[in-house]
Every structure is written in structure tokens, then in C-alpha cells.
Design a protein around this nucleic acid. Structure first.
Lengths: 252, 252
DNA sequence: CCACTATAATTGGTCTGACCATTAATTGCA
DNA sequence: TGCAATTAATGGTCAGACCAATTATAGTGG
């Protein structure tokens, strides 16, 4: 065999499963515009009949699309499968899963975050609008309130939002998305630390205030420098906590 | 209302669905190390019995985990649900879905790619090993062969691999992953262009060769500059093609 | 003894039909 | 009118059956 000089790649023919075919059709209708965010798919029983498949196959397809962030399933009359607006938050789960599969490490994650945010603040220096800066200012204000009230878990939420706002200030939703994904995972570690009674990071509000001021002054180099210093101190705090946990279950 | 000063956030209690509970349990076993890549879950019927749920609920859970890239399902005796090694390629699908949902645009994607690769090549300049550079050299060699043989689809595959190798040369799997995700989507557009008979990009091999040479010389600034110029010319070619397609279905 | 083929056993994939749970509209009663 | 009970629509789950793919095993012929 193999006499044919053509590219005999022969993809392993994974027998096409029904739910995959269904997913592809719905994705196709998204690509060609037949389906748009807000649209509602027919009820499961009806759609299954139209597609000539059983309800179980259709449900696995809908479940897949739900996990992928494409549809939102809602129960009750007037419920159904609705095409979602863009909500890229699902990516954080994907990255986080890979973290637990050992494919990536926390060190790689924090390093990627440092570099990403270096890039992001430089772009934000060029593009941040007044409303972007105002949102950041309000966020820091709320962070200060939470700090004074010792509401540390809510302060973590403020932190997550702070980085999301920075991402938004680049006016590039892809970069914003990437920043949110890596931030979300780090925040999970921070929450663990807070729940365990770890000391909150000192001078957080002051450091963020300075970063936003530099941002407002459009001073990219100094902003990036301040951000990098801040992230590395965060990294240091987390490393402390991680060393403790890893000591107990470390083996190979 | 709101008399309670406590944080009355009251998350909307989405009635916990069975498959979600199952997913969380399996994810939990991943986190605490009870499950590791390569492990096999019990057969569906058996696992459903153990968990006290029906087979359909369990299957929706397994389907979700499969879409998330956590397990791989295999038929036949000796088949089953296997915990996957880290395979972060699923992220590309997530990003691509968001693209079709209109959440992000091709412009944002290409811009993010330019900035990401700027960062990546600078890191790669510091960290690329001999074997990284050797892999890049071999990749370019193969790209040249495909170019001479007019095997353009395979040349696209070489391109995808080229950027994956660049990502790998950073020795940070998170950054590598992000690069692969955005690259994979752009490649889809390139493949469309190739299939439509678009002219292949000229001097591709020469440009990549120069980039790798600069990389080998550890000249971060020049490498980044060459990369940026290259990516922007790619962007220009794609923009041509996109303008044609958008003209036909543009409305609002 | 070896190589090939037919059979069986295991396991995921799908179908059918039923019932449960939630939601919103409708009806009925005060 | 206003509120409570009923009803209808729809996703969520269960149960059991059968289909399809894959591997092990037995059988068969050389």
C-alpha cells in the first residue's frame, strides 16, 4: 500500500457521534448568521424530531454547547435553549482544569500573568478613556472601604474586578479575556489564603492608586514597572502559602 | 429591604443539577490527587450505580468533562473514560466560539496575537535551547519543501507548528497555550484563503529564517521587530479576503 | 504450530417513553 | 381587585432496551 503519492494522511475516522454532528450544525448556523445571540432554539423534543435524533443525543449536544458557553438553558415555560451573548468566562475553567491536570504550573501561570499585564498596562496607557480611569478609581475606592471594614473576601472580588477593568482599558476584548482567565485562577488561590486567615496584602490600595495615577499620566514605562513590582510581591505571598500545602502531599 | 448590613449578595440559587454535582466531584478528585492523568473511571453503568444517579445524568457529566478536555471517552472493551494528559487545545474552540458570537473580532484577535508574539519572541530570545532552535530550523526546512511542492495546506500546518514551537521556546506552557489558541483560529482563516485559491504569502521561508537567526543571536529587539512586521503583512493579506466575504452578508 | 476468521464479551452511543421539578400563564375564589 | 390554586410548557432525570465499536477468545485450516 501507499503507492499513491497523494497526502495519505488518513485521519483516524472517529465515528462521527450524533451529538457532534448536532453541535457542528448549530455552530454552523452561528457562523452563517442564521442564529444570533438572544435567539431561542426549539424545545428539545421538537428539535430532536426535526433533526431525526433521540432526545438524549440532542441533550448531550446542548450540554456540550452549554459548557462551551454558546447556549444557556432555562427551565420552565418560556424557557429553552438561548444563544448567549459573548461570555468568555468559560475560558478560566478550561485553563484551571489544565492546571489541575498538571499540564501547567502555578509558576507558569503567574509568570504569564506578569508578562500579560505588562503588555496590558502599556496598551491601557495609550487607550484608556476617562470612563475607564473613572471605573478604576471607583474600584479602588471600594477596595479601600472593604479594607477598612475587614471584608477581605469582598476585597478579593475587588481585585479581580481591578484586573478586569485594566483589561477592558486596552479596548481589546481578547487581551481582556486572557487577563481575566489567568487572574480568575490566581484569585482562587488568594481566596484560599484569605480563608485560611492569611494576612492581607499591605499597602494594596496605595499601590493600586499609584498605578492608576501613572496610567492617567500615560507613563507606560513607570506604570509597567509599578505593576510588575506589585505582581511579584503578590506572587511572593502566594508562594509562602503554596509551600506549606505542597510539603504535605509532595511525593514524586 | 436591605436592613441587614451583611453582604446580602444572595447568589441566584440555580438548582444544582445532578451532572454538575458529578462534574464537581470528579474535578475535586483531580484537585486532591485521587485521580491523575491516565487513570480510568469505572464503566458508566457501574459509576452511575455508585453515585446513585441514572446513566443519562452521568453521561451528561462525562460529556461536559470531555468538552472541557478533562476526559477522553473510548468505546469497546478496554475502553472507558480516561483522564487526559494536559491537552489545552480545547481553548482554541472556546475562543473561536466567542468570535462567532460576536463577542470578539478578527481585528482584536490579530492585535492580541501581535502583542502576544512580541512578548513570546522576547522571552524565547532569553530561553530558547539548542533543541528549540533546531526544531524551528527543521520546521522551516519542511515549510520550504511544502512550498516547493505547492502543498499549501500542509504549509499552513507548518505555520501553525512554527508558532507552537515559538511558544514552546518560552518554556512557559501558559504562554505557549495562549499563542496556540489565537494562532489556531487565524490558521482557520488562512486555510479558507488557501482553499479559495488565494496566493500564498511570498518570502515566507526567508522571513521565518531571518526571525530564527535573530532569535539564535538573542537579539530580542530585532527579533520582535521582524516578527511584528511579518504578522502585520499576514494581517493585511487576511483583511483582503475578509473584506470580500463581509461585503455580501453585511447588514446592520 | 501458526495465521487467520468467527464469535463473544465489554463498553460507550442512542432511542423510547415515562415521570419529576421548575417556571410562568391562567383560572378561580374571596 | 388581589391573591392563591391550577395548569401547561419545558428542561432534568430515570429506566431499560438495543446499536456500534473494540478487544479477547475460541475455533479452523494450513
Amino acid at each position: 500500500m501507499g503507492a499513491n503519492p497523494q497526502a495519505m494522511v488518513f485521519e483516524p475516522i472517529r465515528t462521527r457521534r450524533a451529538f457532534e454532528e448536532i453541535c457542528d450544525r448549530i455552530r454552523g448556523q452561528l457562523e452563517n448568521g442564521a442564529l444570533k445571540p438572544g435567539d431561542k432554539l426549539p424545545p428539545e423534543r421538537e428539535l430532536a424530531r426535526q433533526l431525526g435524533v433521540g432526545r438524549s443525543a440532542l441533550r448531550e449536544a446542548l450540554r456540550s454547547l452549554e459548557i462551551a458557553g454558546i447556549v444557556r438553558l432555562q427551565k420552565g415555560v418560556k424557557g429553552g435553549a438561548f444563544i448567549r451573548e459573548g461570555d468568555p468566562s468559560g475560558m478560566a475553567q478550561v485553563v484551571q482544569d489544565q492546571l489541575h491536570l498538571g499540564s501547567i504550573t502555578v509558576e507558569e501561570l503567574t509568570e504569564a500573568r506578569v508578562h500579560l499585564l505588562d503588555l496590558v498596562v502599556r496598551l491601557a496607557c495609550e487607550r484608556a478613556t476617562k470612563s475607564d480611569l473613572e471605573a478604576l478609581r471607583k474600584n479602588i475606592e471600594r477596595t479601600a472601604e472593604m479594607t477598612r471594614a475587614n471584608r477581605y473576601l469582598e476585597r478579593v472580588e475587588c481585585s479581580r474586578e481591578f484586573y478586569a477593568l485594566l483589561g477592558a482599558a486596552t479596548h481589546n476584548q481578547v487581551l481582556a479575556l486572557l487577563v481575566e482567565a489567568v487572574t480568575e485562577i490566581l484569585m482562587k488561590f488568594v481566596r484560599l489564603r484569605v480563608a485560611a486567615g492569611g494576612k492581607p496584602q499591605p499597602r494594596l490600595v496605595e499601590k493600586r492608586t499609584r498605578i492608576v495615577e501613572l496610567l492617567k499620566a500615560r507613563d507606560a514605562d513607570r506604570t509597567a514597572h509599578a505593576m510588575r513590582a506589585h505582581l511579584q510581591s503578590v506572587h511572593g505571598l502566594l508562594q509562602e502559602g503554596l509551600r506549606l500545602k505542597q510539603g504535605s502531599s509532595q511525593k514524586a
